[in-house]
């Protein structure tokens, strides 16, 4: 049986891992290569690196970081943040990334998804969506934001997820901007709605504060994988604790 994935996320700025609260107030949480090795040994299923420097210098640093990580850990690596074109994607994949995630660039130019999928395969292309709930009717809606959550796009998150998958994205990395950084649980209405709308895996992101939160994202949110940062980085829970807890609740995990 396919197991659900537990994915630590490392936000990298200038070659160092940081974690924000709702994308602001960054705190330093360490060396990405060391953290990657740590999570590899702990039994994480995959790692996501988001380069939040978003400058050409930062991108060169990131290529170097990815190369060093791929020498050390033998698990799937996804890299995103500021990738603007096919060449940016190619550099990360050649450096050792297995998948690249695109966010703002894909909204501004959806063809990048089609081109990336044609060139590297759908399994390499992750559509990252930052979504914020709009309105307060009985049927929730979510709007897509870009530029690190700074800029509303008017796009409906569910429709955008469907369209990105139709263009060739092989996975959705879905972040709730409302939940992100608050450690009070994922937005599982959002997770479930997207997971049921597309036929590719969905990674739930934003809001993990407890193991129960991870469980709910997989159970109620129907996510295929859960991503979390601070609860792992600051040692609140180990990957082992997390998986034993989930296994006890009947979720298939790799232990």
């Amino acid at each position: 049986m396919l197991t659900r994935r537990i994915i630590p996320c490392l936000d990298v700025k200038g070659g160092r891992v940081v974690k924000g609260k709702s994308f602001i107030n960054l705190r330093d949480a360490g060396d990405p290569v060391k953290l990657a090795g740590f999570y590899y040994r702990e039994g994480a299923d995959e790692l996501v690196f988001l380069d939040i420097t978003a400058t050409p210098d930062g991108r060169n640093t990131m290529v170097d970081v990815v190369e060093r990580i791929s020498n050390e850990v033998f698990m799937p690596l996804t890299v995103g943040g500021g990738l603007r074109n096919i060449n940016d994607m190619r550099r990360m994949l050649m450096a050792g990334a297995d998948k690249v995630s695109v966010n703002s660039a894909a909204v501004l130019n959806p063809e990048i998804i089609r081109e990336g999928a044609a060139r590297f395969g759908s399994q390499c292309i992750v559509i990252a969506i930052d979504a914020k709930q709009v309105g307060n009717g009985k049927k929730p809606r979510w709007e897509v934001y870009i530029s690190s959550g700074q800029k509303p796009t008017g796009l409906d998150a569910i429709e955008w997820a469907r369209r990105a998958v139709a263009l060739g994205a092989g996975e959705v990395l879905l972040t709730s901007m409302d939940a992100d950084g608050h450690r009070a649980g994922y937005d599982n209405d959002l997770n479930r709605t997207v997971s049921e709308a597309v036929n590719v895996p969905v990674i739930a992101s934003g809001g993990a504060g407890s193991l129960e939160d991870l469980y709910q994202a997989l159970a109620a949110g129907k996510a295929d994988a859960v991503l979390a940062a601070s609860i792992f980085h600051y040692g609140k829970y180990s990957i082992g604790d997390t998986k034993r807890y989930l296994a006890g609740k009947g979720i298939p995990v790799r232990i």
Binding site: M1, L2, T3, R4, R5, D45, E46, S122, Q123, G170, E171, N199, V200, P201, D224, A225, R254
Partner: peptide, 8 residues
Amino acid sequence: KVPHMGWN
């Protein structure tokens, strides 16, 4: 869901 993606 396809791809079949993850640990099995």
